[in-house]
Design a protein around this nucleic acid. Structure first.
Lengths: 130, 130
DNA sequence: TACTGCTATGTGTATTATGCATATAGAAGT
DNA sequence: ACTTCTATATGCATAATACACATAGCAGTA
């Protein structure tokens, strides 16, 4: 088993399940956009891994199936046709609900860290862990 | 499709993947314990859903397979025999790595909420909210 | 004795999320 | 012709998770 600190960090990544959904919904709340555009937008966000195209496009289709976004084809402009998504009223409602739950999750994480720090009475570990 | 706010909240729960792992490791860092004991401890934690026994016991076995905990049978005392787990050195290392990644995740969630609030121009909810 | 309930540890299985590889294709530059 | 960038997808293997169910010791009590 591996003890390299870098790999240990990799092995216990802390992912929020389905987090790409509210991120997409928030981008679309700012303005309608097509998938490739959203991929670049999410890819530029601080400390987020670059999104997987497969997951992103699949998620958009799933959001549309659930009525949270709707899409139209944009054949104008240069390059291949783009499927442009926009937020629906229900999508906005979901975004707000996500925000509420994200706050609750942050509270749980804070609670964990408080317990953790109480146990080890340590300074905050840095990203390079040691 | 449903518009009941309560159900909307349910549908976009915000789960941290594998979060039961660091919670178990932290409990075991405090003191060795058996599964049932850990279930009660996690069940009492603030705002966390009561853990599923199947998931909990399976996770403990998986942690042992990976060398993060070790177990011994405790046949003393009343009731059925208990498998008592204790943290290994490597388990402690993983717990620290989890803490680092949890902080990174919190930073990402904060970044999302900042963007969200910027978009909708809302105040952060306070205790005396409204 | 039989029954009930609490303690304690598990398995079976279906669903969902995710990452990685791969496919398709228009358009623009060299 | 070729490469590169833009753009949208599918296929598949693995992993996480929830929910139901199985097993069994032990204690109290009717």
């Amino acid at each position: 088993m591996c003890h390299d600190p870098q790999e240990v960090l990799e092995n216990c990544r802390c992912h929020v399940r389905g987090f790409i959904q509210p991120r997409l919904l928030l981008q679309l709340a700012k303005k309608p956009a097509h998938g490739y555009e959203l991929m670049e937008a999410l890819g530029e966000e601080n400390d987020h891994p670059t999104p997987d195209p497969g997951t992103l496009y699949r998620t958009l289709r799933q959001l549309e199936e659930e009525g949270l976004v709707r899409s139209t084809w944009d054949t104008g402009g240069t390059g291949p046709a783009r499927r442009v998504y926009e937020l629906t009223d229900q999508g906005l409602e979901y975004l707000h609900a996500w925000a509420v739950n994200i706050r609750r999750t942050m509270a749980r994480l804070e609670h964990f860290l408080a317990q953790y720090e109480g146990q080890f009475d340590k300074e905050k570990p840095t990203i390079e862990a040691r």
